[in-house]
Structure formats: C-alpha cells, structure tokens
C-alpha cells in the first residue's frame, strides 16, 4: 500500500537523520578537560576524599 509505506519511510527518514546527528556528535574529539579527567581518574579514589574539578558554571562537581 503506497500511502502507508510513504508514512513509514518518512518516520524512518527522520530517525535516520537523528542517528546521523548523534553519530556526528559522537565522532567529535573530546574536549581537553574531559581528556584530563580521564587521565587523572587513577588518582581519584572517591569524590569525598578528592577535591572535585570545577564545572564550567563555576560550581563544584558533586
């Protein structure tokens, strides 16, 4: 039934576009501060005994 198939195609088309947006985001390089965080993970035993890094809004990460 062409009409029904057209509906499904449109919905699938939107989902495929959403996936492209997501994959595009997932291909971006990590920013330096996240890379630094990963590099320093070994030194972090638990948040309560280590000062948490500052967030971009100036708050302390919990």
């Amino acid at each position: 039934m062409p009409h029904k198939r057209e509906k499904r195609t449109a919905a699938v088309q939107i989902d495929e576009s959403l996936r492209r947006v997501f994959e595009e985001d997932a291909e971006e390089e990590l920013p330096p501060r996240l890379l630094n965080l990963l590099n320093q993970l070994d030194q972090i035993d638990a948040p309560e005994v280590m000062p948490a890094p500052q967030r971009s809004d100036g708050e302390t990460a919990q």
């Binding site: 972090i44 948040p47 890094p53």
Partner: peptide, 14 residues
C-alpha cells in the same frame, strides 16, 4: 554536556 559527562564519570568511577 561536558559538565554532565564530567559529573557522570566521577560518579561512575566512585
């Protein structure tokens, strides 16, 4: 998003 990932990683690690 970066704040959120940072908080998530810290929570997950701990």
């Amino acid at each position: 998003a970066d704040d959120l990932v940072q908080d998530t990683v810290l929570k997950a690690w701990s």
